[in-house]
Design a protein around this nucleic acid. Structure first.
Lengths: 187, 187
DNA sequence: CGCTAAGTTTACCGATCGGTACACTTAGCA
DNA sequence: TGCTAAGTGTACCGATCGGTAAACTTAGCG
């Protein structure tokens, strides 16, 4: 139960990877930026890949916690919370350092679907799907699995489009679509 | 009007970059894989970045041509063609070598929005948006700009999700959503 | 006190990175 | 025939890549 250098490393590595990309961030640059010696890094993680996997685990935990909490803060009923997901996303997109979804980025850099980093990115999306499907069920929507998948397609699209930046407010575009889809699935 | 080595290089580089990623594909590996000498490559393109930009231009042209043509082949009216976009995507996703959208990948590896590669990827998306918006207008849908943006969010989401592979058929999920959105925008 | 675990600095490894220099071959064309 | 443009092979550049060796400092704890 030591809250020390290892966690500090993972946290700072997360910032660096998110800002610079995975392949483009070398271990030397990482050591220079975090102030943690290369030797120490390799005492905690056998390879760069291991470090990236730890970073993705941390990101998964933080992001899902943040999103779920924010959805609950912004709305009361499950149905309203599903819609509020896109207001939460809008807040995120508006942050100065926004650079898209870290897991989409990771799966873009490690494309092979059998690669551990790719698989862990897919796992993150699967966890999200479970939660949103559960919420769709609680909202008593018809065909909860299908509507959940549709809402998540809008979410992925909005995250990508917000990073490409050729559209003014993808989060609200997605929200408008989500409202219509949810309305069509009420029973 | 020479159809020679330069075009051959761009075409083969496209394959390599799509399969391996941009940063992960070195110029030596590229020379070995294409059989074109490194010296020749640097006679045609001053830098790797220039080559990547040429690859993206070719990809933009090919992809948009393919998608627009396939949409016209699959359906007659503009409204049906908008829906058929997702059938075309499904065909693409089912191809053995499918590895996601090259422009999302490019913008993931070159994240800075001011980077030429990022800007060119955004430009591709903007060209698509113009065409789909035009089609939505021809389909006489209410609020053509908004519905076009919504359909494109579904498209981006489907492409990402198809690559992550945690869902059975994102193209058909997107199509089902598209049908409902379009139905809600009929006038 | 002395042991141990965690972390440090410094220097290094072979491999690869993007990019270049130079001398050579080949084909088209006047 | 002889010039030129396009392409080649080979060898190299300095920088950086992921990863390691070895000797040292520091702090906690019996």
């Amino acid at each position: 139960m030591r809250p020390t250098k290892r966690d500090e490393l993972v946290q700072q590595a997360l910032q660096a990877f998110y800002r610079n990309g995975f392949q483009a961030t070398g271990m030397d640059m990482l050591a220079a930026e975090t102030g943690i010696s290369k030797t120490s890094m390799y005492k905690h993680f056998r390879t760069k890949e291991d470090l990236i996997l730890a970073v993705l685990r941390l990101r998964d935990e933080h992001f899902r916690n943040w999103l779920y909490r924010r959805m609950e803060e912004l709305a009361e009923t499950p149905r309203q919370q599903l819609i509020a997901m896109f207001d939460a996303l809008e807040e995120w997109f508006a942050e100065p350092g926004y650079r898209g979804c870290m897991f989409i980025k990771a799966s873009s850099e490690y494309q092979d679907t059998s690669h551990p980093i790719h698989k862990q990115s897919a796992e993150h999306k699967r966890m999200l799907e479970i939660h949103i499907t559960d919420l769709a069920r609680k909202a008593e929507l018809r065909d909860a699995d299908a509507i959940a998948r549709q809402l998540l397609l809008l979410k992925e699209g909005a995250m990508v489009t917000a990073h490409l930046g050729h559209t003014a407010n993808p989060a609200q575009d997605a929200k408008a679509a989500a409202i219509q889809l949810i309305e069509a699935h009420r029973q």
